Simulated assay, not measured.
Amino acid sequence: MTKFFRSLHNWLGLILVVQIALWFLSGLIMAILPIEQVRGEHLRLVISANWQQAVVSPQQILQQHSARASFSLSERLSWKNNQLAATPVYLVNDGSELYRYSAATGNPVSALTEQDIRQLALAQYNGDGTLQAASLLQQLPQEVQQLPAPLWQIQFADSNNSRFYLDPATGKVIRVRTDSWRWFDFFWMLHIMDYQDRSNFNNPLLITFSASALLFTFSGIVLLWRRFRPRKRHTNPITAGN
């Protein structure tokens, strides 16, 4: 039995050594990186709309859509009198389409111009770089692949290699991506072993390696117990009779 567990432990160790090291390394790196910095919260100015301005009810908006439509809240940003302002907006996701309505009038919110997007991106940017490029993306890169297209990508020339992704109709920053986030995402990929989408925590590869690592740990415990378990003392019968 001991020989079986020793052989099992050794072979599992050889197979798992690299991935176990990557689990510890990636966990350490993700623990070290401040999550606020990873999300780019220090680079983004957040402004909220005054929802007392909302006159139209969500039910009035949802009546225009199918029963499967989902509903959420957002803001339409504008630059007025050298100040960033926000008005309330309803977002309706109906099938594969995203609709935006003014909560004050109920009218559809039209897309902003590139000049508006550039101005709003700069207004929401708290960094020390300059705006380098603006692109309206119909196909999104991996770092925002789970968001609905289209989105404006705004690139800033700063030490963080920052990119803002803005809603084309509201001008609101949806995501901030920096080099810190990209490093975090890389190590997250190694940690969950999803090398394609980097989001599936229940993929078969992770489950298989995790189960093998548990078996590796269990076999090690068995070997450790068999090595250090208390030994029974054998009494010499001649000595015991004296």
Rank of each mutant, 00 (worst) to 15 (best):
164 F>D: 10
167 D>Y: 05
130 T>Q: 13
134 A>Q: 04
163 R>V: 03
127 G>D: 05
132 Q>W: 10
150 P>Q: 13
164 F>K: 07
163 R>D: 00
135 S>R: 11
157 A>C: 03
147 L>E: 15
129 G>C: 06
159 S>Y: 00
149 A>D: 12
155 Q>G: 06
126 N>F: 00
161 N>R: 04
129 G>M: 06
157 A>L: 15
139 Q>E: 15
145 Q>W: 00
161 N>H: 11
167 D>C: 07
126 N>D: 06
151 L>Y: 05
166 L>E: 04
148 P>F: 07
158 D>E: 04
165 Y>P: 01
163 R>A: 09
133 A>Q: 15
131 L>R: 06
127 G>T: 04
124 Q>Y: 12
147 L>W: 14
129 G>S: 08
164 F>Q: 09
166 L>W: 03
140 L>D: 09
138 Q>V: 08
139 Q>P: 05
153 Q>L: 09
155 Q>L: 08
167 D>H: 05
128 D>Q: 15
166 L>I: 10
129 G>K: 09
163 R>T: 08
124 Q>F: 10
143 E>C: 06
166 L>T: 08
149 A>M: 08
167 D>M: 02
129 G>W: 09
154 I>L: 15
147 L>T: 03
138 Q>N: 14
134 A>S: 14
140 L>V: 06
124 Q>I: 07
152 W>S: 03
131 L>E: 11
147 L>G: 03
